[in-house]
């Protein structure tokens, strides 16, 4: 996504000067289309392309503010094809933060409902500004579906226990600082986070609208037991966890449960079901051994 090559200083000045030169025979077909179709087109573009489209004309700028689906993925901000150094990673992360800070309040002017808001970002200190922007947006406009995918800068298999605890502490500072943002989330995906047991409950309590929770390499300590209670949660997925057992205490709306690559010790029953009346689909997929006991339903 190297844009530096296409957008140069000269282009801007030229753009301002060519205003009167646009009198060629070809018609401007696209501007005749109704707003909803052009917004539909914009929804298919990435944030940088949408920003560039806003520069095209006043109409397009207006359209970018009318969008009701906003997806911002830190991966959209990678310069070149991949992130190879920490420096590049920081730059990518900061760009994503800047984009969110600009896009969310800007869209605010129109006061329209956001049907879907999705942000994928690094669990790094600067990302607090992303959470703050969402926190603010949640107060000024209706957000129907909101999703955070919070990833870590180190890939999961290389995270040490200390890294996971640091990640957990950082996540808690985000949750404590912006409870409204987390309170409005319908989808949350966490990676390599270790939380204290009470912290885990706090996160679930704060995220009161949560419908889908994905825990990738997350636990409440090695060999920990996680008790889960939530009134709205419909989908839960636990992947590569270091925890020993998950107790589904009270999940009246849970319909989908997925557990993958989770290797609890053979001495315990890893899953127990208490009040889970709506469960429709259970997916269990793990490199299990003959030593693993069967799952138990109470």
């Amino acid at each position: 996504m190297a844009r530096a090559s296409v957008v140069e200083e000269a282009a801007w000045i030229k753009a301002a000067n060519t205003e009167c030169q646009q009198e060629n025979d070809q018609e401007d077909r696209i501007s005749k289309l109704p707003d909803d179709i052009l917004i539909f087109v914009l929804d298919k573009l990435q944030p940088c392309d949408i920003a560039l489209a806003a520069v095209v004309s006043k109409r397009w700028r207006h359209l970018t503010n009318l969008r009701s689906n906003i997806f911002i993925d830190v991966a959209h901000f990678i310069e070149g094809t991949s992130v190879n150094t920490l420096e590049e990673l920081v730059r990518t992360s900061v760009s994503a933060v800047e984009a969110v800070k600009r896009i969310l309040p800007h869209s605010n002017q129109s006061q329209n409902t956001l049907n879907r808001l999705g942000i994928r970002f690094y669990l790094r200190d600067e990302s607090i500004d992303i959470v703050r922007s969402v926190d603010k947006a949640m107060t000024t406009r209706k957000v129907v579906k909101a999703e955070f995918v919070i990833i870590t800068e180190i890939s999961e298999e290389y995270n040490t226990d200390d890294d996971m605890m640091d990640n957990g502490r950082r996540l808690m500072t985000f949750v404590d600082a912006c409870p409204r943002a987390f309170g409005g989330l319908t989808h949350l995906s966490l990676h390599s986070v270790r939380l204290g047991k009470s912290d885990f409950c706090n996160v679930l309590d704060t995220c009161k609208k949560l419908e889908c929770l994905r825990l990738n390499d997350c636990d409440a300590g090695n060999k920990s037991v996680l008790k889960i209670e939530h009134s709205q949660l419909a989908e839960l997925s636990i992947v590569s966890s270091g925890m020993e057992r998950a107790e589904l205490i009270w999940l009246p709306r849970l319909t989908h449960l997925t557990c993958r690559n989770w290797l609890p010790s053979q001495d315990e029953y890893p899953l127990s079901f208490h009040h889970v009346p709506q469960l429709q689909r259970l997916t269990l997929c793990t490199a299990g051994t003959t030593m693993h006991k069967t799952f138990v339903c109470k």
């Binding site: 030229k14 060519t18 646009q22 392309d49 489209a53 095209v56």
Partner: peptide
């Protein structure tokens, strides 16, 4: 996708009213 504002104007014949 991946085009500058100028290039987008050119492709679609959009008048720059800024």
């Amino acid at each position: 996708k991946g085009k500058s504002p100028d290039q987008i104007r050119e492709v679609f014949n959009i008048k720059n009213d800024y």
